[in-house]
């Protein structure tokens, strides 16, 4: 058998070195990014391996294979001698909460964003400048006041009530984001539509909204993730077990802190983050087109 030894031509080697010299900063950037991202990647890997392992070596390295920790998907789950209710009720509540929040937020902020971007009315500038102040309030500061409002409306201990509160807290940021997208849409299109006989509502709905689809996608993503991961408001204002969401269900899985089943906790945590990861993977391209704040008519 003849071995053919190929020698790298001197020209090719030179060009490789030249590329390296030109793009060393890029390589360095990738190297740094990899180093800084590695702990996060390893964390997810550990979470996955723990969820399918029977035990851990030295409390850290997962070992042995089992699907037992995932059994909450098809059967009751027992934590510290207590049988928890099905995870699917909590999953449905979380979908309802995050989905409802997204719908409310998109409708309200697209209307408000359009108005603030396109219309002149007294107090417009003040409203725009103060809109972010609302978002700057940490929810925890408002808990007592919110309790009194929800209680007065009879909405305490309901998902709808907490959804309303969350919408109110989230809307300022969404308005600010979507207004930037409306600012980018040319006035000519709007004028042409008005000349063709549209009123402002049909212009907004039929002409302008299709132009700001990436913006709508962006605020949808933010709303959905905010709703999916919401804990404090739900934990405070929901008293009934049948209204619990996945975040609170995870708390029940942690159960008595003295005997945490880390395998089950890892599996449930993965189940919890999976829809958000999936949602993010499919919609992240819209996020890249985001232009917060705009620059035209603030």
């Amino acid at each position: 058998m003849n071995m053919v030894v190929k020698k790298t031509p001197p020209v090719a080697r030179d060009s490789f070195l030249k590329t390296l010299q030109k793009k060393w900063h890029l390589l360095l950037a990738y190297l740094l990014l990899t180093i800084f991202s590695l702990p996060i990647g390893l964390m997810f890997l550990w979470l996955f391996l723990t969820s399918i392992s029977t035990h851990t070596i030295a409390g850290v390295i997962p070992a042995g294979f089992t699907l037992e920790h995932w059994s909450f998907l098809w059967g009751p789950v027992e934590v510290g001698g207590r049988v928890l209710p099905s995870i699917w009720q909590a999953t449905w509540n979380t979908i309802l909460f995050a989905g409802g929040l997204t719908i409310f937020e998109v409708i309200i902020s697209t209307m408000a964003g359009y108005t603030l971007s396109r219309m002149n009315f007294p107090g417009r500038k003040l409203m725009l400048r103060s809109v972010l102040i609302l978002h700057a309030f940490p929810g925890v500061l408002l808990l007592i006041a919110i309790f009194y409002v929800l209680n007065a409306l009879g909405l305490i201990d309901t998902l709808w009530g907490v959804m309303l509160v969350k919408v109110a807290l989230q809307i300022p940021l969404s308005i600010y984001i979507i207004k930037g997208f409306f600012d980018e849409v040319s006035w000519d299109i709007e004028w042409a539509a008005l000349v063709d006989g549209c009123n402002r509502l049909t212009v907004w709905y039929q002409v302008i909204l299709p132009q700001v689809k990436p913006g709508i996608a962006a605020i949808s993503i933010f709303s959905f993730i905010a709703g999916w991961s919401e804990f404090l408001l739900l934990f405070t204002f929901i008293f009934s077990e049948h209204n619990n969401t996945l975040a609170i269900y995870l708390l029940a899985i942690i159960g008595d802190f003295r005997v945490v089943n880390y395998g089950l906790l890892a599996a449930a945590a993965l189940f919890y983050i999976f829809p958000v990861l999936l949602f993010f993977l499919f919609t992240q391209k819209f996020l890249m087109k985001m232009n917060m704040g705009g620059g035209k008519q603030v």
């Binding site: 309790f147 209680n151 305490i156 201990d157 934990f235 405070t236 204002f237 008293f239």
Partner: peptide
């Protein structure tokens, strides 16, 4: 949290 929830639920008569 358990005590806080009772206080809030009491106030809401729940």
């Amino acid at each position: 949290d358990y005590y806080r929830q009772f206080k809030l639920a009491f106030r809401a008569q729940k």
